[in-house]
């Protein structure tokens, strides 16, 4: 029983990433529709819905029994159930909203419908962009996650990657002017915000929290996450895009968008895997470290009758 099997893995991280990015895209689309009556980008909106759907698929694939996935809608008190419903609504609303800007669909241009869909996109998008953070933050036994910081970190990253995704969209498809004019600056602001809150988060965890938190955060500052976090997420995924977004050049901004998206992906993975750090019971870490990992010869051995 290696510890790595007993934590959520990359599929869930990538789910959180795609779902968060897609959800933010729908959120922005909904706001644009509601308050500006404008279509941010048909491709972008559809991509947003598809991203959330990809996230949902990964969530299902991560399950031990993917074919029974429908059962996750059963416990209204569970955050995962709540998230699942919201993702479903977001996907449907996003697809309908996106297609409502396309002439070939019968519901093209029905304003009333667009407004309703926009409302759903805003609400569900906001929920899907945030709930993973809430989910993780409620884990009292996972010292790196626990607390009210995670929702903020997740929402920030979702919003940033959502903006970035539209910016990248603008490279090869038609987008509303606000995407090219305003979004890079919003994104730059979010990068700065992300930088600040992550530094604060790490600082708070390593100074204020429990011994378990201090131990868990060491992974990020000195341990095996240090490079991924500092060089990957903070520098390449946050600081560099921050600068690029401020350069008034489409290519620079586009690359900034890609890097910010990459940053979001790295961050989700690091965060999800840091769930492996538990509030270890006395002696538990040593105990688990001595258990076999699963590849050992004695475990692989298939005994057969002598004669």
């Amino acid at each position: 029983m290696s510890a790595k099997h007993e934590t959520w893995g990359w599929m869930l991280a990538v789910d959180f990433f795609f779902a968060g990015m897609g959800a933010a895209m729908l959120l922005f689309a909904g706001i644009a529709e509601l308050f500006g009556g404008s279509n941010l980008s048909t491709v972008g909106i559809l991509a947003g819905a598809v991203f959330v759907a990809i996230g949902a698929c990964l969530l299902i694939l991560e399950l031990g029994r993917p074919f029974q996935a429908l059962r996750v809608f059963m416990n209204p008190k569970a955050i995962l159930t709540f998230g699942a419903w919201n993702m479903s609504f977001a996907i449907v609303a996003g697809l309908l909203l996106g297609t409502s800007y396309m002439e070939i669909f019968p519901w093209f241009g029905i304003v009333g419908l667009q407004k309703v869909l926009a409302v759903i996109c805003v609400i569900c998008g906001l929920v899907v962009a945030t709930y993973p953070g809430v989910l993780l933050g409620r884990h009292k036994g996972r010292p790196f996650w626990t607390g009210s910081g995670m929702p903020v970190l997740f929402l920030t990253s979702s919003l940033l990657t959502g903006l970035a995704a539209y910016i990248v969209c603008g490279w090869f498809t038609e987008v509303a002017p606000v995407v090219t004019d305003l979004f890079p600056y919003l994104a730059a602001g979010l990068c700065l915000f992300q930088l600040v809150i992550w530094v604060s988060y790490i600082w708070i965890k390593s100074s204020g929290g429990s011994v378990h938190a201090v131990e868990a955060v060491r992974r990020w500052t000195k341990g095996n996450y240090a490079t991924g976090f500092q060089a990957g997420f903070m520098f390449v995924g946050t600081v560099v895009p921050l600068i690029l977004f401020l350069i008034p050049n489409a290519t620079a901004v586009g690359i900034g968008g890609l890097l910010a998206i990459l940053g979001g992906l790295i961050m989700r993975n690091l965060v999800v895997y840091s769930g492996q750090d538990r509030t270890w019971l006395p002696g538990e870490k040593e105990y688990r470290s001595r258990l076999p990992q699963g590849h050992e010869a004695f475990l692989q051995k298939v005994w057969t009758k002598q004669i």
């Binding site: 007993e6 959520w8 031990g64 996935a69 996750v72 884990h139 019971l281």
Partner: peptide, 21 residues
């Protein structure tokens, strides 16, 4: 009823839950 989502594994502070692979 269990789909193996591991939400409970993560939620348990005592490491009391294990996956049956």
């Amino acid at each position: 009823k269990c789909v193996g989502c591991k939400a409970c594994v993560m939620a348990c502070p005592y490491g009391a839950r294990v996956s049956n692979h």
